[in-house]
């Protein structure tokens, strides 16, 4: 028999996330199942609801497979937030593998209601600025910046910037009207918001240093749907999930960053040097400490988890 999976996510069909990872994944499972396992792809939240509701939709079977950010649903997945601390991520492929391993040990309870197919992160967060580049911490003072995660919001505030909360689709509008002075996202987001046409400067952090920030993602399947599959189709899913898929997605995001960066060649790009970043990292450590004490407060071994995340990232890291 044929099984159709409803795949739901918030980015449009033309996004690099879809073309580089979701659609290829669907093609692979179709091929390996001799066309018995197929996807119906619903981009742009076409099935209704809001991006933060995607996880619940996978849990309840509104969609069979979703791709979303655990960070959208704050408080629900605290363990995974350690990967969103500043200066954690080394390289998206290695860090995604590390994230998978980490969740197998520390996040089982949080994700028990779904069948996780992959966990991954995106590439280095970059400052995309309208009027002036970021070269030192002092340049951030008073600037209105849109940041994607709770951790990055807090960190930007620590650095002296003014974080402005707003949904992703509003970023383009807000940049074009000057409601915000810049946005902190990876290059991969550039085409989907047309950032290259709305800003003049892109400030990266030193590539030999860990990334300024990253976000975690989960690619998850409805549990009952997975259980209902016959053994051979289950195997197709098994072969296309786990640490290997996580690494593959991380790699696709690295590629997506390169594609996005190509669009920015007409703008000015600068690198914030490692020497400057030393003081940033000190502030970042405060944030890490507060995460550890939060976890301890929840009765979990915070320091051990932070250590595990760091050593897994190093362990999987490949030379950049």
């Amino acid at each position: 028999e044929e099984v159709t999976l409803k795949v739901h996510f918030f980015l449009p069909a033309t996004s690099l996330a879809n073309t580089l990872f979701i659609t290829p994944w669907c093609e692979r499972i179709a091929k390996e199942s001799a066309q018995r396992l197929k996807c119906q792809i619903f981009p742009s939240m076409q099935l209704g609801g809001t991006p933060p509701q995607l996880f619940e939709q996978a849990r309840d079977g509104v969609a069979d497979v979703v791709w979303t950010l655990p960070g959208y649903t704050a408080g629900r997945f605290p363990s995974i937030e350690v990967f969103e601390l500043p200066f954690m991520m080394q390289n998206p492929e290695a860090t995604s593998k590390a994230l998978w391993d980490y969740t197998q040990k520390y996040s089982q309870a949080e994700f028990k209601d779904v069948k996780p197919l992959a966990f991954h992160v995106h590439g280095d967060g970059v400052f995309h600025m309208s009027a002036k580049p970021i070269k030192t911490m002092a340049d951030l003072k008073g600037l209105k910046l849109r940041a994607p995660t709770r951790m990055t919001n807090r960190f930007l505030a620590m650095l002296g910037a003014t974080p402005v909360g707003m949904p992703v689709p509003q970023v383009g509008d807000a940049l074009s009207k000057g409601v915000i002075d810049g946005a902190v996202v990876p290059y991969e987001v550039v085409p989907s918001v047309k950032i290259q046409e709305l800003v003049k400067y892109h400030s990266e952090t030193d590539p030999t240093e860990p990334a300024f920030y990253t976000s975690t993602f989960v690619f998850a399947m409805n549990k009952a749907k997975y259980e209902s599959l016959p053994a051979d189709l289950k195997k197709v899913i098994d072969n296309n999930s786990g640490q290997a898929l996580s690494g593959l997605i991380g790699k696709a995001f690295l590629q997506a960053d390169a594609e996005g960066k190509k669009l920015t060649t007409r703008n000015t790009t600068n690198v914030i040097p490692a020497a400057e970043l030393a003081s940033w990292k000190k502030l970042g450590q405060n944030l890490a400490d507060s995460w550890v004490s939060d976890m301890n407060g929840k009765g979990q071994p915070g320091a051990q988890m932070l250590g595990a995340a760091r050593s897994l990232i190093t362990q999987h890291a490949t030379p950049r």
């Binding site: 619940e56 704050a74 408080g75 629900r76 709770r150 919001n153």
Partner: peptide
């Protein structure tokens, strides 16, 4: 009920 059970909160203010 589901939101109560999952303890989901808003991103910045952490309101339940």
């Amino acid at each position: 009920q589901a939101m109560h059970a999952s303890q989901e909160s808003s991103m910045l203010m952490e309101l339940p």
